[in-house]
Amino acid sequence: MSKAKASIRTPRAQVRGLGSAKHGVGHFIGQRGSAIALIFLVPWLLIGLRTRSAAATAAMMWIEVPLNGLAIFLALGAATYHMRLGMQVVIEDYISRPITRMILLILNTFFCVLLFAVAGYSVVVIAA
């Protein structure tokens, strides 16, 4: 009991195990790490997409260059990771109902992983 009184958390919160899940630092570092990667990858993509043309061939020829295909793969990998973390924070900020929150967090992960998979699949198909 004396241990419970030393904490600023209510006894009930302590029993329910609410509070830090000890994932905060990892989330913070992951968000910043992917941000730094995107500082380099996004301009590359923007310059590359400049070659985007009404004809499919020009876009595909740009993606077929190994370095560009890799850059797209890396950029969308970093982007989907970064946006999964970002959307997680938005959901946790605004959605307080536990079941709704949990469903949205899972959908968020599914959606970002799906986007990454489609992106990787497409780059491989175009390069092959």
Partner: peptide, 27 residues
């Protein structure tokens, strides 16, 4: 803008997928 980019990245992936599906889909 972070929220908007979330949707926008889906559009980029769609663009990439359309390119992978061939000239018809891309058009």
């Amino acid at each position: 803008t972070g929220f908007a980019n979330y949707v926008g990245v889906a559009l980029i992936v769609l663009w990439l997928f359309a390119a992978a599906m061939g000239p018809g889909r891309y058009a």
